[in-house]
Design a protein around this nucleic acid. Structure first.
Length: 592
RNA sequence: GGAGCGAUAGCUCAGCUGGAUAGAGCAUUCGCCUUCUAAGCGAACGGUCGUGAGUUCGAAUCUCACUCGCUUCACCA
């Protein structure tokens, strides 16, 4: 059998990986999986390309079956042999010199990597440059605006906004790590008919003093009352519409009220963003686009896309199998989608983005389909680069939360509760801890943020405070704790310089940890491809578990030849856990 | 009715391109701190992977139908 060249893989610079084209670098070609590919390529029939072989290689679920496995079922037909016999036949020919061992288990060929050598390579890579470990170049520096958080003025920020905020923030971090340039945009809900309602309510029942004393709660109270009363008295809605029209036309009283409501609200939002340690590149909300909508309407007119229907102006989207997009209401006022059209065009012009993301709940998917369809009708090909990063609904007791009905979970309360609980735990478990308040904040907030990110973002979840602020099991604090333990060991060891030490470890108990460390880059790339922070969160839990397991069964600080190598492992775990948490927007205190 | 998402252990969820006995956490029961932080480690218990067909050497994973749940379907955002 003629050994098959794998040069095709090496010389072709581009490898297709899902949505992205990725130029493999040197170490990637030399990585462990490629060693398996080339070992197999040398003994398999010429008809199989290296890429086909690579696609068949799998990672065994149980570690008794090695690090990589190659099933032979699919060769049975071609070779007219039982898979078991094929496996044995191939094994006899395989060059095993690069592996600890290669064995046959039924129809599988299982490859065991050289643990000491692979381990030392990975640890060196991490310690040489911990900050860039796991990064890669998928994005070529392309700009990616991320529409995120976007709370509504005069309403309290709820758990729903937390989702958008922390998912958007984590995606920004993850995309940065694969060399995109995210632009975090807080598309504030500072425009729209709810301001008409709010103004109408304020004029009827409001007082300046009451608002000043407790802005958001008071405004919220007016809003809820408005909705209660307009059920009986629909005329109130006309009043609200009139007020919003005044605002849109630049009426002085309306504008003053709007500015006031907005600035009071923003002050309170900033407190929460500070607590989460999240910064934005832009606060251009809906109002920002107010003067940019006549152009959009004109574009639609020029392309003859606008139709009149029941007194309103619409774009028909029948051919997209969508309901019509309502651009202007009967009274001439614009709508949500009109502003989003203006925003999308503005972002393309301003950032020349390669992708444009909107981290918005899944209940708005119809809206984003319409948005993309209208942009497409306008002839903008980049409509395809817009992605609605939808996430699941948060319910309570199985019911949807509703601001209008005054059923909200206040984010501020949740965060406060979590911090208090963390503080209580510190007092019980580590009363001597310095900076206890700061650590309590990191742990409490970390628990809430991590809880929000650890599950697939499309899943709905029912809010349960006890679950959100849980510190045991698969939680943010669990990961933080593993990191703090690692740091504690390094402190006890006197923080030695580990970059140059021999990192060969013979203890087989470290292998799971090493393997997990080696997967960091793949994990980040998958998270970026799928816009899915939970991939990173799950990885952080897995690495923490592997490390805790090792920690519980082996003593690290014992004087022997491999002590420094073990410390290098601990340092690497600490670095990667800290990076993982940082990607999620969670802090990693050195002690807790 | 159209569109979308979902259904895996008592609860909350993993399960990557179909593959070797379906995995965690929580809860329950029981072990482990004179040794690097017990926010930890270990063990036990727990499953007709919604139902029924199909494709395949092989299906929790792919296809179709059905059942149930949630979201959404123009003058809110």
């Amino acid at each position: 059998m003629v050994p098959r060249e794998i040069s095709s893989l090496i010389s072709s610079n581009w490898t297709c990986r899902g949505l992205f084209y990725l130029r493999p670098n040197k170490e990637e070609i030399m990585n462990s999986k490629q060693q398996v590919v080339s070992a197999l390529a040398a003994v398999l029939p010429d008809t199989m390309t290296a890429a086909e072989i690579e696609a068949k290689i799998e990672r065994p679920k149980s570690d008794g079956n090695g690090d990589f496995a190659f099933p032979t079922f699919f060769l049975a037909k071609e070779l007219h042999q039982a898979p078991q016999l094929i496996a044995q036949g191939l094994l006899a020919q395989i060059d095993q010199s690069n592996f600890e061992q290669v064995v046959v288990a039924g129809p599988y060929i299982n490859f065991f990597l050289d643990k000491t050598q692979v381990g030392a390579t990975i640890l060196n890579e991490i310690l040489n440059d911990p900050n860039s470990y796991g990064s890669s170049d998928l994005g070529n520096g392309g700009k990616v605006p991320i529409d995120m958080s976007s709370p509504n003025i005069a309403k309290p920020m709820s758990m729903g906004h937390l989702r958008s905020t922390v998912i958007g923030n984590a995606l920004a971090n993850i995309l940065t790590k694969v060399n995109y340039q995210p632009v975090k945009i807080n598309h504030l809900g500072d425009w729209g008919t709810q301001f008409g309602k709010l103004m109408a309510a304020y004029k009827m029942w409001g007082s300046e003093a009451e608002v000043k004393a407790d802005p958001i709660n008071t405004l919220q109270k007016y809003y809820v009352r408005f909705h209660q009363e307009d059920k009986e008295n629909p005329a109130l809605d006309d009043d609200a519409r009139a007020w919003f029209k005044k605002l849109e036309d630049g009426d002085e009283e309306a504008t003053e009220l709007w500015k006031w409501f907005r600035s009071e609200s923003l002050k309170l939002f900033m407190k929460i963003y500070d607590l989460l340690d999240i910064q934005f590149d832009s606060f251009n909300g809906e109002a920002f686009y107010n003067d940019k909508m006549t152009e959009v309407v004109k574009m639609l007119e020029d392309k003859h896309l606008l139709q009149e229907s029941k007194g309103a102006e619409i774009v028909d989207l029948d051919k997209y199998d969508l309901n019509p997009a309502l651009i202007k209401k009967t009274d001439g006022a614009t709508l949500y989608i009109t502003r989003d059209l203006a925003a999308a065009i503005y972002r393309k012009r301003t950032y020349d983005f390669v992708q444009s993301l909107y981290v918005v709940g899944n209940e708005q998917q119809n809206h984003f389909k319409q948005l993309k369809a209208v942009l497409k009708e306008l002839g903008f090909d980049w409509s395809d680069d817009i992605h609605h990063i939808q996430f699941g609904l948060i319910t309570q007791g199985g019911r949807k939360l509703s601001t209008r009905e005054g059923r909200v979970i206040l984010l501020e309360n949740v965060l406060d509760d979590a911090i208090k609980l963390a503080r209580k735990q510190i007092d019980e478990k580590n009363p001597e801890l310095a900076h206890a308040d700061e650590v309590a904040k990191a742990v409490g907030v970390g628990a809430v943020v991590f809880h929000d990110l650890k599950n697939e973002r499309r899943n709905n979840f029912d809010f349960d405070l006890a679950e959100v602020v849980r510190f045991e099991g698969e939680t943010g604090p669990y990961v933080q704790y593993a990191h703090a333990r690692a740091e504690s060991i390094l402190r006890k060891a006197g923080q030695p310089d580990l970059t140059a030490v021999d990192k060969s470890i013979s203890d087989p108990g470290v292998w799971k940890v090493i393997k997990a460390l080696g997967q960091f880059k793949d994990v980040i790339q998958r998270a970026a491809r799928e816009y899915e922070p939970s991939v990173v969160a799950k990885y952080a839990i897995q690495l923490s578990k592997d490390f805790n397991q090792y920690y519980a069964h082996s003593k690290i600080l014992v004087e022997d030849d491999e002590k420094m190598a073990r410390l290098a492992l601990v340092q690497a775990v600490s670095d990667v856990l800290k990076s993982s948490l940082a990607l999620l927007g969670v802090k990693a205190p050195d002690e807790m």
